[in-house]
Design a protein around this nucleic acid. Structure first.
Lengths: 346, 346
DNA sequence: TAGAGTTGCGAAAACGTTTTCGTGTTAAAA
DNA sequence: TTTTAACACGAAAACGTTTTCGCAACTCTA
């Protein structure tokens, strides 16, 4: 087992100084061709690679970006990471991942673990608990220390940083338009509690779409799911709630759900109640994932372009890292959503 | 914007030496209580945190583990990462993720990027291309340099390192048993080309199960999918292949697929052909994911326990990192699979 | 009051780089 | 032959830590 070789060892072996070795390997003109070639040959032979940590310390940059997300077993976030990794890698950066698991404390701890020099900047989507607490001191502190942050999807407006979002309002509005144009008159929405910003916006889009069509929203058709209960096991109760919704409102002929899973489950309930999709009732979900594509019938969804969001976020961050000048200019990139039409709508 | 403070700055401000500051903050008895408290107060005020990179350089360990996987937009791998992150975090480690995207070159590059001091050890599942090339020099080199590696799921036997796998043979055997016991007589298998080890093993399990029931395997019922074609878009051709299989073999009453997606698609085809699931034909897939759970009918699957695999892998690696003594003892942990019975079987 | 022991702190090395600056040797110019 | 310039290399600092060792300045003890 030959351990990794260092400049010092090469220097000793070849009886030159460390500086000479370093310069030779970087093709400095200061070094004669003779010694240069000799050193390079030796380095190649022993497969020399500069130690990254030493470089990081010297350059005071790590070429690593930290990503904090609430959950990784989630199609959307996985796609975002893929996007981040793609451009990070292309531009010579590594990606270090921290999971908050939707917990405020874990988010804070994770950020602290990374903010002590391990990374050059953050890309993050904040946890639901943080959104609820509305405690963002860890973000402001990080920013104050001069570490750039890019937020995506679940952003908070008060925080002054780059952001990548989708137009939730417009996206859901378009989805509901689609249902309306397809002849639906009684459209229900399955959404989250309001503290989840994206849920709130999507609900608002739903309401505005109805208004545009001169339809008065019926609060009985708005189901706000408490997704504390949604920990994989409590899906049954969600199913029951939806079934109740359908029973109480037999006229429902369209459903818009703020995420894929809600839509799929609603569709399942509908079919169990012998409603025909899309003839009797049509469905659209937000956030395109595997389920939508492979369900039967496949689900019409609003695509969020997770990978693109990741790419944009990484691009923003690296740009900021590499151009120290325009430090204080922040931008918000809005990704266009689009409707992927499948079998659940006419 | 107050940049992060260093020992040197504290020392200068308080007019003591760097060593004194360092010792005071680590509660050394060498330092008088007076100065100790003064320094600690000052450090707290300025929110001092030791620079991680400097520590890494000094200690020659980074407390970071590198994870290389072929794909992250994949339920199984995401689960594994979650498991890794869970125990890594609990034990004070960070996780840095590299995606090979099933490409040999990207796998090599990614490993090289990380092996230069950025991490203490690897957890990886190798790409299909690497499996095809059977070129594992990057693995052996890494190991030779003294960097521990833990392989999971897609492992290669020749490489001498810790491993975490499932018993693919037994898992698929049990699945096929289940179909046989449920009265199936003509069981088809949808599998991958043989170079994917897990596919091969699962196929073998299928064959052995049949043999145990004194059934002679029929090669016409073995569909080996060329998953070069499987890049999301070519699913149609897969569907066509499966449809052909069903048409050519009307007697098929059970299907075992080596992954979730194949099973779901096969089920879709069957239903399109007006076969009743599970009455006319039963399905079992390998690898439990979101699709299996939420499909209608939901799919009976062999659960791979991805998260547990991740936890075990991280545990193995960190144990190795923290006990230098027993360097040369490698173990292979086999995770038991189990059958999750759902609606696609009787 | 001399010697011994204790206390409190600082200097310096080390981790592995890169880079600035200085210096000795040789070759060219005066 | 002397001055100057070019060349080839080394010493040292710096990044931010931790830790070993040395050394003053005390406080006891005899």
């Amino acid at each position: 087992m030959k351990k990794k070789i260092t400049l010092k060892q090469i220097a000793r072996e070849l009886d030159v100084s460390i500086s000479t070795v370093s310069k030779a390997l970087r093709n400095s003109v200061e070094i004669s061709e003779d010694t240069r070639l000799k050193i390079q040959a030796f380095a190649k032979l022993y497969n020399y690679r500069p130690n990254n940590i030493a470089l990081s310390l010297k350059n005071r940059k790590t070429k690593t970006i930290g990503v904090i997300i609430p959950e990784i077993v989630h199609h959307f976030f996985a796609k975002v990471i893929r996007g981040i990794e793609l451009v990070a890698n292309k531009r010579g950066y590594n990606v270090i991942v921290g999971l908050s698991n939707e917990s405020f404390d874990k988010e804070v701890i994770n950020m602290q673990m990374l903010a002590n020099g391990s990374i050059d900047g953050f890309i993050l989507s904040i946890s639901k608990e943080t959104l609820q607490h509305q405690d963002y001191h860890h973000l402001t502190e990080t920013i104050n220390q001069g570490m750039p942050i890019v937020m995506f999807d679940r952003v908070v407006n008060d925080i002054h940083c780059d952001k990548v979002i989708i137009d939730d309002l417009k996206g859901s509005k378009n989805a509901v338009y689609k249902l309306l144009k397809n002849g639906c008159h009684n459209i229900a929405i399955i959404t989250t509690k309001d503290y989840v910003n994206v849920g709130k916006l999507r609900t608002q889009g739903y309401l505005e779409a109805l208004e545009d069509f001169k339809i008065i929203a019926d609060s009985k058709l708005i189901l706000k799911v408490d997704d504390e209960l949604l920990s994989e096991d409590h899906l049954d109760s969600l199913e029951a709630e939806i079934e109740q919704l359908f029973r109480d409102n037999k006229t429902i002929d369209g459903v818009f759900a703020v995420n894929e899973l809600y839509a799929i489950i609603a569709m399942k309930v509908a079919r169990k109640m012998n409603l025909k999709v899309p003839e009797d009732i049509q469905f659209i979900g937000f956030t395109d994932g595997v389920l939508s594509k492979h369900a039967t019938p496949s689900l019409t969804t609003v695509s969020q372009h997770g990978q693109l969001m990741g790419e944009k976020a990484a691009g923003l961050l690296i740009d900021k890292l590499e151009n120290e000048e325009d430090e204080e200019r922040f931008q918000t990139i809005v990704i266009e959503t689009n409707l992927i039409e499948r079998e659940s709508t006419k």
